[in-house]
Computed example of a mutant assay.
Amino acid sequence: MKITNIRVTHVNVPLDAPFWWTAGLYGGASKSIVEVETDEGAVGLGEAPWWHFGEVIKAEIAPALIGADPLDLADCEARCVPPWQITANTGENASSVAFGAVELALWDIRGKVFGMPLYKLLGGAVRKDIPFSEYFSFRPWHNGAGGEMTPEAIVDYCLRMREEHGSTIFEGKLIMGDPALEIRTVRMLREALGPDAQIRLDSNMQWSLTTARRVLREIEPYNIRNYEDPVATFEEMAALRQHSTIPFSTHVPDLRRAVALGAPDYFVCNFAALGGLSKTLKFIAACEAMGKGFWCYSNDLGIMTAAYLHVVAATPWITEASQSLFRWQVGDVIRDGPFRQTGNTVRVPEGDGLGVELDPEAMKRWSAHFAENGPMGHFNDPNNPGRYRRLPLN
């Protein structure tokens, strides 16, 4: 079997309403969808975490892989990715992320060739109902959606998710640069949701160490399951650990520093950003050996989410719910997408490979959105147009 073509399509998939995060208003995702075609008719699907990695695939990865055996992952990687020790030193790691998106498609091909879902290729399922969190944030009104701009509105939203979907796991960003507002919202959430619901927070590094000490001291009595990136560095998280027992997580996959410093406790990562599924499996195994937890990223489309489902299904070490923005996504590129949880979980697909297929009409719609509007910006601060925010906010 040989790779005959690699097709890259840029798409925009907006959220029903933008949400506030540290860098401004986040309105949706601009992704690159990858289709790897073979001379035997098998087509694998991949997804790049942001559209500009698709340009790297078109310019560098695709030409190198034409004629390669899609089942020989080592050979494919050797054609595309320089040694990581060098690229980490020179800042030229875009090829690693770009290849990670393509490598996902190679795993999809492998599952289709062997006629089994990805989780079976990974050793079999230890669970098939995969937990995901609901998400909350301060969101302005937009075309009839959003409007959660007060603590009361966020509480009402979470209660509605519990009533309508059986949700008891909630994660959110309370990012307005106001410590008192976050403390008040957390208190109200715990009082409304009761003692058994999980509440996790994500600050996107908005707090200084001094402010983070105050915030975590005040919210610790409300049984916070996890706080993601409360401050900007691992060193600051280690200092913060002296004042708080709340676990910390991060998107920065630096396991050695986390072990050396004792914080953070969990990693939350996109598989392509780690260099592909093979490297992700090695990273998770290293986390297990070092006593660090792992769960999966959010704001991905259905192809990457399917990969999350299969890996979590096959990995006993991943026990915490992964992040999701499923409820806010207005569409997807896969048939019957986006995934949406019921009772906190999504069922792992049973089809061959990733178990998902592209929806041609959806691809046409969302690629046209990209072509007409360009990529969706997520660093937009309407209070200070044309300027990037600087951290910390407080």
Rank of each mutant, 00 (worst) to 15 (best):
S367P: 08
V348N: 05
R335I: 14
D352L: 07
D300G: 02
V356C: 07
F370R: 02
V356H: 09
K364M: 02
A314L: 09
E361S: 08
Q329P: 03
A306T: 11
T319G: 09
E372G: 10
L309E: 09
K364R: 12
K364Q: 07
I303F: 07
M304P: 01
R327A: 02
L325K: 01
G355E: 00
R365Q: 12
S322F: 00
L301V: 03
Y297D: 15
D336R: 11
R365I: 10
L325S: 08
V330Y: 00
G353R: 10
L309M: 14
P316Y: 12
D332C: 01
A371Y: 00
P360A: 14
T319P: 06
P338V: 01
G351F: 04
Q329V: 00
R365E: 12
F370Q: 01
G355Q: 08
F339C: 08
N299I: 08
G374Q: 07
G374M: 09
S322H: 00
T342A: 14
S322N: 04
A321K: 04
S324C: 03
F326L: 07
M363F: 05
H310T: 09
Y308K: 12
M304Q: 13
D352C: 13
A314N: 11
Q323V: 00
F326E: 04
T345F: 14
S367L: 11
S324E: 03
D336K: 06
V346H: 01
G337S: 06
G302C: 06
M304Y: 07
Q341R: 15
F370V: 03
L358R: 04
L309R: 10
G351S: 11
W328V: 00
E361Y: 07
A313Y: 10
V346N: 02
V311R: 04
Q329M: 15
W366C: 01
Q323C: 11
P349C: 10
A314V: 10
T305Q: 14
A371R: 14
C296W: 00
R327E: 01
I334E: 05
V346W: 11
V330R: 03
L354K: 12
V330K: 12
N299Y: 04
V311P: 04
I303Q: 03
Q323D: 15
T345C: 15
R365G: 00
G351L: 07
Y308M: 11
P338H: 02
Y297N: 14
Q329A: 13
N373H: 14
G302F: 01
T315P: 09
V348C: 12
W328H: 12
E350M: 01
A306H: 07
D300H: 09
G355N: 04
L358G: 08
V312E: 15
H310W: 09
L301H: 03
R340P: 00
V356G: 11
Q341T: 10
W366S: 00
T319M: 07
S298R: 06
Q323N: 14
F326I: 02
R340A: 01
E320N: 14
I303G: 03
E361H: 05
M363C: 07
G337T: 05
T315Q: 13
G351M: 09
T342P: 01
W317R: 03
D352Q: 14
W366Y: 15
E361R: 10
D336V: 06
